[in-house]
Amino acid sequence: MNNAWKIVIGVVIGFVAVFGFPFYYNLGKANVAPKLKYDTPAILEYEKEHGKKECVEPKEFMAKEHMQLLNTWRDEVVRYGQRIYVNSRGESFHISLQNTCLNCHSNKKEFCDKCHNYLAVNPYCFSCHIVPKEKQS
């Protein structure tokens, strides 16, 4: 058969189209990992008071496990009515996305969304919770 090359070229092109996609899709784009902003008025105030910025748990833990923590918090409140969280440092916090987490991180766009958009994660927190009004310094 003489038109064999057509098939072969078809396969090769199809192959390159699929596997080369990430390369040329990103062509010319800079690789910038998101930088989060910790400069909401609440955080700055906390820093002034305590001399440092810190979350309910260490930063590394929060980066990897915040979704699990939030999930636990939700279950504690909704299922068991438990409203107090004691962290690894022994401090107590009021369990509330709206009033605890988002009190400090009131900049959803500059904080939550940064990574979530970067990684295309769509948490369903805000299907129920209200997005706080942006407060920025």
């Binding site: 990992a33 590394e60 980066a63």
Partner: peptide, 20 residues
């Protein structure tokens, strides 16, 4: 768990030919 933001940063570095 691994820090996915860093993972993506590594992968994107490879894909944009500026590995980190």
């Amino acid at each position: 768990k691994v820090p996915v933001v860093s993972v993506k940063e590594l992968v994107m570095g490879l894909l944009t030919f500026s590995p980190v």
